[in-house]
Design a protein around this nucleic acid. Sequence first.
RNA 1: GCUGGCGUAGCUCAAUGGUAGAGCACCCGCUUUGUAAGCGGGUGGUUGCGGGUUCGAUUCCCAUCGCCAGCUCCA
Length: 653
Amino acid sequence: MSEEFTARNALEAQGKFNPSVVAAMVNGKLMDLLTPIPSDATVTAVRDDEPAALEVIRHSTAHVMADAVQKLFPGTQVTIGPAIEDGFYYDFSRPDGKQFTDEDLQKIEEKMLEIVASDQPFRREIKSRDEVRQLFESMGEKFKLEIIDKATGDLSLYRHGDWVDFCSGPHVPSTRFLRAVKLTHVAGAYWRGDERNPQLQRIYGTAFASPKALREHMAALEEAKKRDHRKLGKELDLIAFHPLAPASPFFLPRGTKVYNALVQYVRGLYDKVGYDEVITPQIFDTELFLTSGHLPGYEENMFLAATSETIEKGAAAIAKNPSNDPKVIEQHMRDHMRFGVKPMNCPGHALLFGMTRRSYRELPYRMADFGRLHRFERSGVVQGLTRVRTFAQDDAHIFCTLDQIKDEIAQFLDLVYDVYRDFGFSDVRVVVATRPEVRLGTDEMWDKSEGVLIDAVKAKGLPLNIAEGEGAFYGAKIEFHLKDALKRSWQLGTMQVDFTLPDRFDLNYVGEDNTEHRPVMLHRAILGSVERFYGVLLEHVGGSFPTWLAPEQVALLTVSEKFNDFALEAKAELEAHGIRVMTDLSGDKLGAKIRKARMLRVPYLGVIGQKEVETRGLSVRSRDEDKDLGFIPLADVISRVTAEALPLSQRKS
RNA sequence: GCUGGCGUAGCUCAAUGGUAGAGCACCCGCUUUGUAAGCGGGUGGUUGCGGGUUCGAUUCCCAUCGCCAGCUCCA
């Protein structure tokens, strides 16, 4: 084995090397062309038009960007610069602590193009820890030193031109491969992702193998923006926001129809699989949340409620024991905030379960609740419908025995997948989230709850992702993630195994043996937050809700006002069959009415003129088939629309 | 919460250190209409809110609220 033997040598020997090769797969591992490899390794070429090349191109582009930044902004320290799903970023620490401006990005991009054009080869060097430390110490790269001190294995440097980074690679052979580069935006980011650490200046960019691929990517981004539920929600008169209720959506009449259809759909499922719906209080004595552990554990996310009376009592208490210590005053105020607005339904459900003596015959007891929840989310995290401060979940808590857990999870997984299929979601990622650092309960409980969830996912044959330490404070979770139009992933459904709350609330049921036993509590939601699901669904369908969810299923459009009487007659008849109908009886011309109804994405347009009145029917135009279906008698319109007014899983045939 | 950007009519957007304009929507009139915008007229804004600089601020500065992107945090 020669030290100098590289993937490039191997490919040349195979006759597979040409200028479009950017990297190589060596024994199944992505490597750059100039790293020494065993002479008997299996080597295949990775050309610049292959997906695997993108990561290499982007990470190399990050190096070039850092080079450009340090040339333009001397004294700026580098940190890390990985390739990410749609591009790359690099985090910098500027001596002046300032953020880069859009003009800076422009300059950096220009400088990068110079570096690219100068065709600098990337070179890899293996160095001893001392040499590497010394090098970066001399450059004043304090963040890099931290990374170096944590690194194990071979310490490699990559150079292009006169710029060097501590990096494991791989990289493209030369900067000339980086010919489709775009810096997109800047943002702050915390060192090592911890908000207690100093904030760094992050520059995001993207890079592709060809200018054409870059253009296509930018065009796709534009398209995605058009699907943004905040934009569609406004355009389609579904939702609105007001500064006086930040992060709290108003559902307009059209939007409310869809919202209610979603809830009604889930209710229908509950009837089939044995859930009992309940309605529970909004505001509880804070003692409830002390028992559940939400206080103080979840306090920063809770709205606490005062009344005039509690404020007076609090003030009196402070007057009685005057203090200048803010902490003391704070404690008085806290003591007199007697009420908390529920951020979750579980404590209320635990109370409800515990109100009467329960028999094992009642289990599993599936308690469903669409109650409104309020959580105080920090101002920077709220977003459209996907992260709000008030929302409802299709929430339920299943009280069951240890033995019943397995079947309940299996039933739930089936239910979730049926539901996602009904909405046309196929790209669902399943994650099991394990015990967080701050948690209730014993390690034994956690072992049990994590185990049972992992087993259930495996039993269903689903690909398993583990999110270490991401569980709820009371139990491990299965999470179902879906992506929005901008490829941001959101957790929707969830199932959590909870051995803790039943303990804290001292919940019991009488077993077959006539002694008391502790039930297990399963927290679960299919849609998750109805609001979030709504937002993701709106983007998924691009505003065109399927007939069973659409705010209006049929729009009746008259050719002239002479035919309005029949339109109202037809409306009444369709509505008598449960069809949601809108009419446009205005003086507009037909073309304008069609345009308006199409922009509202109504699934069926029914045109009414002389002919239709005479023969009691509609000239129907279908949104989804995007064509004129011609004349259809009213009775046939009714049967067609009602057939479509059900989700797939509930249709006959 | 942090970093950066943004905030002009119901919506989408112009404009300027010298007291704001278009299209759509809305209202009125004409037109009575056959598959994506018929014609004409009109209403509508203390330029998010509060302060400052200035002879004068919507424009410049500060503060605040909201929105957007990212970070952190989460359904």
